[in-house]
């Protein structure tokens, strides 16, 4: 059983949804970034999503764009992102780690080498925003051999004709993009999310995580009533950015400030189904 399967099984046993947190690897600097990721599970993150910085993140709003720029300026690369995961795995062999980003760095790395090295580093899954089912066999094939889950995305625009193609070859979980738009721009509508999750469940038994447009503990709780996990990214990256000096360096207390925001999100997600 993979770490992702184990974690979702444990969540089901507890009768609750999970919290997935997103931060970009290497933001705002390698050392602070490592401390942030290392602190997330204790603060309540059930799955950790690690952004692979890319110069041209077409699906991201300004907050995550800037996070990537900061990380790239600090010298982050895909190789160093994998090294970060190796470092995290020395202390934590249970929390599922999923990389999220764009295809070009993976393609340059070589998708076969990437799948092998990612699994060796301790990565459980990968989400590639600009690699739709029509194009992703060059990654899903080597990923299957290496044991790396390729998490497929579904969107409000994915109709019933498309969903079977998305579900086929999907592994780990399905990532439902709750809004038609880029990250961090508008709020997801809880009713629409519930309808969409119900629709997805007609096609798959895989767990369903919902992201894009979830900022507050209340929104996370609302999503957690329907979905298996709620993903929060921009709000956390924004908290990180609030704790930077004008020059872009981390202020003392940055790590605590971000982790303090994770706790109420986790509490919201945990309590969601008890309130019903």
């Amino acid at each position: 059983m993979s770490r992702i399967e184990q974690r979702f099984a444990a969540l089901r046993a507890e009768g609750r949804a999970g919290l997935v947190t997103y931060l970009t690897a290497g933001d705002p600097d390698p050392e602070t970034s490592t401390r942030l990721f290392a602190g997330l599970p204790a603060a309540g993150a059930d799955l950790v999503e690690i952004g692979m910085a890319f110069s041209d993140p077409m699906a991201d709003g300004p907050v995550i764009q800037e996070a990537g720029q900061r990380a790239l300026k600090q010298g982050i690369t895909l190789r160093r992102t994998l090294a970060l995961v190796r470092e995290l795995r020395r202390a934590d062999n249970a929390t599922p780690i999923v990389l999220m980003g764009y295809y070009n760095p993976i393609y340059r790395y070589g998708s076969k080498d990437f799948a092998r090295d990612a699994v060796a580093a301790g990565v459980d899954g990968v989400i590639v925003v600009d690699l739709p089912p029509e194009e992703d066999s060059e990654l899903t094939a080597p990923a299957r051999i290496s044991g790396l889950d390729v998490v497929r995305l579904a969107a409000p625009t994915s109709d019933d004709r498309r969903l079977p193609a998305i579900i086929e070859h999907a592994s780990g979980f399905i990532y439902y993009v709750a809004i038609a738009g880029i990250t961090g721009t508008r709020s997801a509508d809880a009713g629409e999310v519930a309808d969409a999750v119900a629709r997805l469940r007609r096609f798959t038994d895989l767990p369903i995580a919902v992201g894009f447009g979830i900022r507050t503990p209340e929104q996370a709780a609302a999503v957690a009533r329907a979905a298996d996990a709620a993903v929060v990214g921009t709000a956390l990256v924004q908290r990180l950015a609030f704790n930077l000096n004008p020059a872009g360096t981390a202020r003392p207390g940055l790590v605590d400030a971000v982790l303090s925001d994770v706790r109420p999100l986790a509490a919201g997600v945990c309590a969601a189904r008890k309130q019903i």
Binding site: P132, L153, A155, S158, I166, V177
Partner: peptide, 12 residues
Amino acid sequence: GGRFVAETLMPL
């Protein structure tokens, strides 16, 4: 070539 776009855009 190909179609390397986000799922949201794929149906469009």
